[in-house]
């Protein structure tokens, strides 16, 4: 098999896959650094992690994977020439992104009310950095979904949905490492 045919096998534009791999490497390095620093102070990291609201983060996971399903469904609808339904699915996916951000906002506000900041403990430095950077991607992704709902060619929707799935993909790895591994 030639190189060209291997790359041709990838669904969507090659550049969106370059972006997905780049983001996975950036977040992956952050998560590996988080666990490496934790190895020097597991008790301190465990105590800090107990201040997190695991159930809320679990709900946010359900919200995000549901939003991802809607974005994937939108592409299939658009390919079936059901433009109106595809647009509705994209807007619904973006709205679930907003729900994710609201829950995340309550979580951050709760930490601030407890007097927990980024410099309280190294755990929270990583927590704010990684979850905050991910939340910034959710903001961008929700805007991209709305943009491709407006400019709704199948190619645009495929690229916008792929960006959203990358946000989803990062979260399903970030969530267990930051919130669940005790």
């Amino acid at each position: 098999m030639s190189d060209a045919s291997v790359f041709d096998e990838l669904p969507g534009d090659l550049m969106i896959w370059v972006l997905i791999v780049s983001e996975l490497l950036v977040f992956g390095a952050g998560l590996a650094a988080f666990l490496a620093v934790r190895a020097g102070d597991p008790a301190g990291f465990g105590a800090a992690q107990d201040a997190l609201y695991r159930t809320g983060a679990g709900v946010n996971t359900v919200v995000l994977v549901t939003s991802g399903a809607l974005a994937a469904w939108a592409l299939r609808l658009r390919e079936d020439a059901r433009r109106g339904a595809a647009r509705l699915a994209l807007v619904a996916a973006a709205l679930l992104g907003v729900v994710f951000l609201l829950i995340k906002g309550f979580e951050f506000a709760g930490k601030a009310a407890q007097g927990i900041g980024w410099d309280t403990h190294p755990f929270f430095t990583f927590y704010y950095l990684l979850t905050g950077f991910h939340a910034a991607h959710v903001v961008a992704g929700a805007l991209v979904l709305l943009l491709v709902a407006w400019k709704d060619t199948p190619r645009n929707i495929e690229a916008g949905a792929a960006f959203w799935h990358m946000v989803d993909l990062v979260w399903v790895i970030l969530f267990p490492v930051i919130y669940l591994l005790r």
Partner: peptide
Amino acid sequence: AGMLVLSFAWLKARVILSSYLRLDAAPFW
């Protein structure tokens, strides 16, 4: 328990890649 949690994370990532990102049609990748 930690091993199980990380195994589930790997499985979730595989589902997103295969189904949402449609890599089920690109077995090499």
